[in-house]
Design a binder for these strands. Structure first.
Lengths: 273, 273
DNA sequence: CAGTGGTCTAGACCACTCC
DNA sequence: GAGTGGTCTAGACCACTGA
């Protein structure tokens, strides 16, 4: 199902009408068994799910316009008004941007994810970003509490990462990350030869996992011995612990991480609605 | 303009078609000068603004249905589809709830404001809520930093509150609150004879101020002498400081507060999108 | 049963962008 | 000027609620 689709073919114009840009819904409007989202769902939600899949599978490059409302409506055999409703929901979720007179575009991951820099360290900014380093990567059956958060079955494995961020050679953040292995096998391979500054865009580009929502729980805790050693601080130094559960657009848990920042360096912003 | 409207008259049924339920837009569709939102705005936004004003002024009780889409559309002389778009935006902002077969209702403030309990203290819950106490209330010209956040002119006054929350006779939270006096005069009077558990619903009921969005900035700070005294803790005890700017639906700043929680008691949740 | 909101259609006219 | 999305209309049929 999750064949990689090479979007680099004809990235700009003169799109061939080939398989890669075809609706995953069958032409007659019913659903192929493999793509069966509940057919009792309203049409616009079925179309939304289908279109979202195509976006996640990179059917269109970031700077390439989707087909116009009219063309998409014709392709899915629905009215333009209904297609507009589909696109409106995608705009609302930050998946696409629409520009009058130009077209509809896949939103860039960097612009989409306000989640990238919610935890900051004092004295740092977008320009002076702490350097990420992965200090451990293994596959493992996670602690029960993590397995529960990720809705895993008892023996399901995870990809575990221990990552730090440093600023001026001083470690300012230490985090433990668990990812359901089933969806993140490609990430393991990727991280063996790459050190990306952010992980979320890699989840998307390597694993076709598009993160949509996060729930953060913050508490203050004294550092235990292991974490204190990472920071080269005394045990029991006060730190802030941010526990974050990430969900995809279907509400399925995608990542659980707990991040520690020594209290003096801690800074965090959130917009609440 | 902000006449109090008594919504207790005919709270259930048999609504008279009196002034209180009339559109604030003029019948011919143009705008009265006092209510002039920009007439170049699309019709659905003008209607939205008008309807929102009526909701804030409590033209309908919380358990009373608004007129149906059809009736509202007729009243504003727009198509039902456009009225639906208006109501959709209000649903999206959590202002109203729509129930198929029943009608459209003003959302309850308590359900609307997920902001009510984002900062918690360890060991507390909705059932065991810490008790709020207002320990100081004055009108004052705020510090420059606060005035800037609230977009006040140099000599604009604010209502200043110092409030604490206690749990089992132990103070777990101390907060300093600044409100633009112009919009909050009635609050001052109200708080002289009431001790509500939450302020936001009072902003709404007493001052017709409906809060829509908050931006929180969290940092860890050692307590200064004054704050340490409030908690009866040593100076320099580590605490978390949450600075919150609240905005109304128009994006105008409505409140600025800085809350302190001793680190050991600190707990905070946020949903990030 | 009448009345409500939820979905969907098939048009219209406009503002804006790019060629 | 051709093509895009933004607004708006005027219907239709449906699912659900409450009397």
């Amino acid at each position: 199902m999750l064949n990689q689709v090479n979007s680099k073919i004809n990235p700009k114009k003169n799109l061939q009408k080939d398989e890669k840009n075809a609706s995953l819904l069958q032409k007659n409007g019913s659903l192929s068994p493999e793509n069966a989202s509940d057919p009792r769902l309203p049409r616009y939600l079925q179309v939304r799910d289908d279109l979202l899949k195509r976006i996640v599978l990179r059917s269109w490059a970031a700077d390439e316009a989707l087909p116009s409302e009219e063309k998409l409506a014709a392709e899915y055999e629905i009215a333009v008004g209904t297609m507009r409703k589909v696109l409106d929901t995608l705009v609302n979720d930050g998946i696409v941007d629409r520009v009058r007179g130009r077209g509809t575009f896949v939103a860039r991951a960097a612009e989409r994810s306000s989640m990238l820099h919610f935890i900051r360290a004092k004295g740092t900014s977008r320009d002076a970003l702490p350097v990420a380093e992965i200090r451990a990567m293994t596959t493992a059956i996670p602690p029960a509490a993590v397995a529960e958060k990720l809705k895993l079955k008892p023996r399901d494995k995870t990809l575990y990462l221990h990552r730090t961020r440093s600023f001026n050679d001083e470690i300012v953040l230490s985090e433990h990350i668990w990812l359901p292995l089933a969806r993140f096998r490609k990430l393991q391979k990727y991280l063996k030869s790459n050190s990306p500054p952010f992980l979320y865009p890699i989840y998307e580009s390597e694993c076709d996992v598009l993160v949509s929502r996060a729930i953060d729980d913050l508490t203050a805790k004294p550092l235990n011995r292991a974490n204190a050693a990472v920071f080269k601080l005394k045990t029991k130094t006060m730190a802030i612990c941010v526990e974050r559960l990430m969900l995809d657009h279907a509400g399925e848990p995608v990542e659980w991480r707990s991040s520690f920042v020594p209290a003096e360096r801690f800074q965090y912003s959130a917009e609440v609605r």
